[in-house]
Design a protein around this nucleic acid. Structure first.
Lengths: 222, 222, 222, 222
DNA sequence: CATGAATGAGCCTTCATTCAT
DNA sequence: TATGAATGAAGGCTCATTCAT
């Protein structure tokens, strides 16, 4: 889980992923499902092999180690989570419908919600392992900050300059937003708490509103 | 991790814990530390025995199974986290300084922050295992909701009736608050992200402010 | 030792046994020897592995559990002990040389004696475990009665109708015969008591004579 | 299970048994029950301690080892089984009602049946362990032969001289009788097979008749 | 005499990984 | 490339036995 540089791994991964055989795809799919269900540590390679209808040796022929299989599950997701967010999301979102920060926030949340809904199981794996596996977290953290956080940070700074946001450091603002949105995703898709009776649209709206305005009732007379 | 009722386990545990040996204490302490560091699944009983300077058999004489050792680590924390919160916190807080919901919220956060700071490692274990271990989560959830959530929910309802909070269901309000505060605790004590340059006092104040007022700058003229 | 049906186990076993590895054969051979020598409960899998010159894991790759290894030793013997006896023995014996019950009995004893002499060690294991292991006995008993006892019972009934045997229920007759023959096999092959100075031929003859005529000296004058 | 001489053990045992505390009796009673139920090898000392409501240490204070506890269970039974049989049975029986061997045999069987019925569980333990435990068997065998077999052998010889029994060596006769009677006891009290619908009286009578006369129907005309 | 905490060797089993086919 | 038999280290757990109290 440690050795070398993560980016190298990503690149190596990319190379391999070109010629993915049917069996390889089956292996990764099965691994995702099982890791999501029971966690990486509680899933054995023999189990993966059985459900993927593949010999156990085949897994190791392609991925070398179980750790590496985990990376092969997680990295493409991370790779996708970031640049997608970066490119299509930002530039795309920023230009048109984003008269104000609230619009940007709403668009961002909707965009990520869609992405995660389509990758629910991998999201579960990533969150669980990021929390559980210190090594992995340490490796991914800097990469994560540089790509996502900084980018959003810039947007926030921009809107702050426009005077739309309160006078708190951009990092702090970013953090608050990230926490609220992140904990929403986690409790919904990982913990799978069914607390709310709102529909999704309303939930997003509520999230946005909460972030923008908090919970205090505006004094009537004003 | 499944069988039986959790409350029974708690009771049984309480009974046993009366005559705790020095070795028993040592075992639990070591288990907490190692579980926090590397997670339950990645910590072996032989490792615990080694660091606790105890024969491996001794662990099983007292706790029967590794699973049960985990419970012996987690349950006292849970038991403390809830009633303490319930009693001392609520009644104590509610009477004096709680002219408004904001004061209640601030007191609550400070109180729990103190508690978690004093039990940092166990908190890590609890969070990690709650996320990682589905069985455990399912067992603890109802117990958790009934004790904590409902109680806070009542307070929220009360303040809503006083007209201090926006017109959103108490459950939703509770959730939003819980997410913000919870994710603060998690990212600070579990993920150990050192994002902020604020001191603790300021962080709490910022949290309270964020929950109450959001991030939108009040329009100047108003 | 309990779950499921024994016949299923036999069938599953049969399927697996098609492609038996050299190592597998070695494992079973060693297991038979050691179980016979010291009993199932006093033989460790590591010991079996050592003597079979196999990694301990190999045992479990093929047999899953120690219990299952025992079954893999016992079941083929049982399977062979019964149908063989049933078919070849009965029909074979019955037709030609069996003018009377005595001839049938003699042929049966000789046939089984041969079989057990060729499977002495497994016979020891079976007897010991059948006596020692209640679960196993309960599982095997019905199977045993239906296949062996009933079949012999029919023969006995037939000869009774011919008027060759005394007027006692067939079951009781069967039991007496089985006890005499069985205890002969057990004391000779399991307890390994060397009481007799007769040769085998004479022993069988004595057995037959005893069963047929008892020990009372015929009154001279008659 | 091996060291030293068995007779010494018996004597030592006798000494101890004089001042048997309540706890000691409880321990032996429990041990008998559990050994009978699940076999020596599958019964743990902690289990015995639990059911006997005694600390585990207490068992070892009195009996030193688990092996020795087994001996403490078995030896008194053996000691009783033999002399009792020897004295009261033989001399007692022989004089009065034993006009013929059949009477002697009947009396002997009835006497032992009574004894075993009163010591059913210990009998189970003895039989199972004698079969399972080679060491134990080797130790007890000579002792057994010298005390029981020889004594009965003399009686048989006597009746042979009277011309009541067929011309087969006394040892062989003894063996045949022992096998029939023994296997009856074992299948009834150890295997607990409920094959027969006769009452006990009839069963004994049948046993005697079988031993004396076999199963062949006497030819009518003679 | 009785206790029960403590021990550590040994047990059965799992599992990631290797390698000959 | 794919297989699956084989491995052996490591894991959780049991148990007879010891010993301080």
């Amino acid at each position: 889980m440690s050795e070398e540089n993560l980016l190298d791994a990503i690149i190596a991964q990319a190379k391999l992923s070109k010629k993915q055989t049917t069996k390889q795809r089956k292996i990764v799919e099965t691994a995702v499902k099982l890791f999501a269900e029971k966690g990486y540590a509680n899933t054995s390679t023999s189990e993966i092999a059985k459900f993927a209808q593949v010999a156990e040796g085949t897994i190791f022929r392609h991925y070398g180690t179980k750790d590496n299989l985990l990376l092969s599950v997680i990295l493409p997701f991370i790779k996708d989570a970031m640049p997608t967010m970066a490119e299509s999301v930002f530039s795309g979102i920023m230009t048109q419908n984003t008269a104000c920060f609230e619009d940007f926030l709403r668009a961002l949340i909707k965009n990520r919600l869609l992405f995660i809904k389509e990758n629910k199981e991998i999201f579960q794996v990533v969150v669980k392992e990021l929390l559980y596996n210190d090594e992995l977290r340490k490796e991914l953290q800097p990469y994560f900050f540089e790509n996502i956080m900084q980018r959003i940070s810039k947007v926030i700074t921009m809107f702050k300059e426009r005077g739309e946001l309160i006078d708190v450091s951009s990092d702090t603002l970013l953090n608050m937003i990230f926490n609220v949105v992140g904990s929403y995703f986690v409790s919904r898709f990982v913990l799978q708490l069914a607390y709310s009776d709102m529909d999704e649209e309303a939930e997003v709206e509520n999230l946005v509103r909460f972030i923008m305005d908090g919970i205090r009732k505006p004094s009537q007379g004003m």
